[in-house]
Write a protein that binds this DNA or RNA. Structure first.
Length: 490
DNA sequence: TGAAATGTTGGGGCG
DNA sequence: ACGCCCCAACATTTC
């Protein structure tokens, strides 16, 4: 009698290398059935947005091909996870289900319930860590609680044993005698959402596990040695751009970690080594984001610092739309927002600038920014998105103090000094000379007309005056502070 | 992973 | 020679 099949339930681990669930199942010499279940309603408000779904579709296509090359298939289903798994188990008489864990609160809870149910039915369940260097519970403060400040969090992580080496790629996957039925990928209708905006065009060659490995190699070959400077330069190709691949698990943080570590040992100069360590620290922020989300599950919607619940945000749909569409009149902000719409991605430095602008210059609630990013980013990740917005709004863990207001003109001049980034995404300003590129409203009339720009006609005048908006933001923050000191008695 | 306001210092012009 | 003022340049404080 042949051993019962094992289901390998794919989540955000769309790869064949360093995939513990698949590796263990394949090593057990029992038939393996890789399955992907589309059940977005189980993610509640934070079901994948439009851009994310478009990328997911591409990534699943690549995974299908890669599984086929290993002699296997990807079984695709949709419906409630527990019910769908139950049906599959029944159909193929599976004896085991393996998966790599997810840590988003709703999903972690769902998966634990499924585990309990399956185990109650006598099914073997094994789960693994494939998407973090350090799992949320294993890092604790001296008093046993979660961290709220990055530096001590990361220090504790670094004091632990190194993350384990990545597992080798699974090359041959044992097949069952009979495959269960499967949907076609396009039957998941991942691309048909009606909500705005449209989806970015994705080049298939840039999606999937192989593309992710290439991206990492290219980063190590070129940009990492100058990452200390390059990470802040949206006009350069100075960052890894691995966020999307990491979110979908086309590459694992362990793979990135060890590749960078070994690069450091071969690097010759001190600056390059420091740059690479700075990049590892960025992986630490990703860990920290997951740690926080796990321990403070309410934070995608509500501030970690409770006093910010009372902050008097403005409701301003017109300004919000101007921000979303890249029509604020501040070139660096508009360039970022248009890069986001056109490509589904934005440089991190610019994410901070546009975030600060929404929250502080426009005084619009950070949650509205988080929702827009969620809909438009191909790398949308609940942990990272939550941390980023709470950081910029000053209401999160280890956040920028509220009075730290980015000046979009100075930031533009500092990090896009030639204006190349602005000109790439805001073509109306293409002919404007560099000294004026970040503040067109201050350019002499002749300079503007020579560049073919008519403010308010083919490029907007600033939606707010930054100096005045900054003061307004500080006032709003001040009121929050005084309310805190002198709470209204009920 | 700011920026603006305010304070300090030191060189040079000048009476 | 000296004090005074101006004002960068830099440092510190404040928001």
């Amino acid at each position: 009698m042949s051993p019962s099949p094992c289901l390998v339930w794919f989540h955000r681990d769309l790869r064949l290398s360093d995939h513990p669930a698949l590796r263990e199942a394949a090593a057990a010499r029992r038939p393996v059935i890789p399955v992907f279940i589309w059940s977005p309603e189980e993610e509640g408000r934070w079901r994948p947005g439009k851009a994310s779904r478009a990328y997911l579709l591409g990534s699943l296509k690549q995974l299908e091909k890669d599984l086929q090359a290993a002699g296997s298939r990807l079984v695709i289903r949709k419906g409630p996870s527990k019910k769908t798994l139950g049906e599959l188990i029944e159909e193929i008489q599976a004896g085991a289900v393996y998966w790599n864990r997810r840590y988003e609160p709703a999903l972690a809870e769902r998966d634990e319930k499924i585990r309990t149910t399956l185990e109650g039915q006598g099914i073997e369940v094994r789960t693994f860590n494939a998407s973090l260097l350090f799992e949320p519970e294993e890092i604790q403060t001296g008093s046993g609680g979660p961290y709220r400040v990055f530096t001590p969090f990361w220090k504790t992580c670094r004091a632990k044993p190194e993350p384990s080496e990545p597992l080798p790629r699974v090359r041959k996957i044992p097949s069952p005698d009979r495959w269960p039925r499967s949907l076609k990928l396009n039957e998941l209708t991942l691309e048909t959402g009606k909500e705005k905006p449209g989806i970015p065009a994705l080049a298939p060659l840039r999606v999937g596990e192989k593309a992710a490995a290439k991206r990492l190699k290219a980063f190590l070959d070129r940009a990492i040695s100058n990452y200390a400077e390059g990470r802040d330069r949206p006009d350069w190709d100075g960052v890894s751009r691995l966020s999307t691949a990491l979110h979908f698990g086309e590459i694992s943080p362990r793979q990135v970690w060890h590749a960078v570590k070994s690069w450091i040992t071969t690097a010759s100069n001190r600056l390059a080594k420091e740059s690479a360590n700075g990049f590892l620290r960025q992986l630490g922020w990703r860990e920290f984001a997951h740690h926080l989300l796990f321990h403070y599950p309410h934070t995608p919607a509500r501030p970690l610092r409770a006093e910010y619940e009372k902050f008097a945000w403005r409701d301003d749909p017109a300004a919000l739309r101007a921000w979303q569409e890249g029509r604020t009149g501040y070139p660096i902000v508009d360039a970022g927002m248009r890069q986001l719409r056109e490509t589904g991605w934005m440089h991190n430095r610019v994410r901070m600038i546009v975030g600060s602008f929404l929250v502080k210059d426009l005084l619009i609630a950070w949650q509205q920014g988080a929702e827009w990013f969620w809909a438009t980013l191909i790398d949308a990740d609940l942990a990272n998105n939550t941390l980023g917005w709470q950081w910029v709004a000053g209401c999160g863990a280890d956040a920028a103090p509220f009075f730290r207001v980015f000046n979009p003109v100075l930031q533009g001049r500092k990090f896009d000094p030639e204006g190349e980034y602005v000109r790439r995404y805001v073509p109306e300003l293409k002919k404007l000379s560099t000294p004026h590129i970040h503040a067109p409203w201050k350019a002499p009339a002749k300079v503007l007309s020579d560049a073919g720009i008519e403010l308010g006609k083919n490029y907007p005048a600033p939606v707010v005056d930054h100096a005045a908006a900054r003061i307004r933001a500080l006032r709003a923050y001040e009121r929050l502070g005084s309310a805190e000191r002198n709470p209204i008695q009920l």
